[in-house]
Amino acid sequence: MDIKIEFDHYTLAYGRDVVLNDITLPVARNAVLAVFGPAGSGKSGFLRSINRMAELESNERHQGDIRMDGVSIFAPAVRLPELRRRAAMVFAQPVALPMSIYDNVSYGLRLAGQRDRRTLDAAVERALRASTLWDEVKDRLDSPGLNLSGGQQQRLSIARALALEPEVLLLDAPTAALDPISTAKIEDMLIDLKANYTIVIVPHSIQQAARVGDAAAFFLNGMCVEYGAGNQLFVSPRDKRTEDYVTGRFG
């Protein structure tokens, strides 16, 4: 397996709350890893560790290591803004910043200091095409992002992340707040995207995990109970707890 990200005995705590407990896990390059489990099991903590957003909590502590392309993301030479541009994140709630569609999509690039209008134009178009939003908004790029529907805003959020040409996409329940049609659009998009990106997604259902994941990890109480490639976790789980959860007997 070609490994993009590697968790190595990684433990994360907010104050006294242990969010992730001794996680050791590979994330394969140009594939989709689905991280699922009950609420509070540490899925968001897992994602937010990869781009070091977890450190925004004042009482965050961690042990162990996470490596991207073999290099520790905690190495002193790592610049946080750059790490977050390499591993861009999309949240469960669609967020259109109060600015135009164009400014939303080009936001990350402008933060990085990109001022060249043609470069920005090209990046905006490419990102919007990739997130399948281009045809819907190409005539009104100057209108406010807040005017878009929820599903469109979420694809806008994805476009905003894609515009950075990241290596990794971190998607924290990106379809949790969406209707089935928007959800299907985004799932289709993921299949196309994984040719170029490493994707870690928290699916909003077990079905979605099975549909989009090239590999899956089941989290419970901050621990990775089981990790498996393909549909293994859903077809033939090895751990009793995984089996209970995927068959809906979890309680």
């Binding site: 781009n51 957003m53 925004l56 946080l80 803004p81 750059e82 977050r84 541009r85 861009a88 994140m89 949240f91 709630q93 967020v95 910043l97 109060p98 600015m99 936001y107 990350g108 402008r110 933060l111 990085a112 959020s157 905003r160 992340a161 950075l164």
Partner: peptide, 27 residues
């Protein structure tokens, strides 16, 4: 100002001051 604006800004590589000037102050 919604916390989500700050999260989005940070997640796309904003420094704290960039986050303040581009995501917080305009709102």
């Amino acid at each position: 100002v919604p916390q989500s604006y700050r999260n989005v800004s940070y997640s796309l590589g904003a420094t704290r001051w960039q986050m303040v000037t581009t995501a917080v102050l305009p709102s």
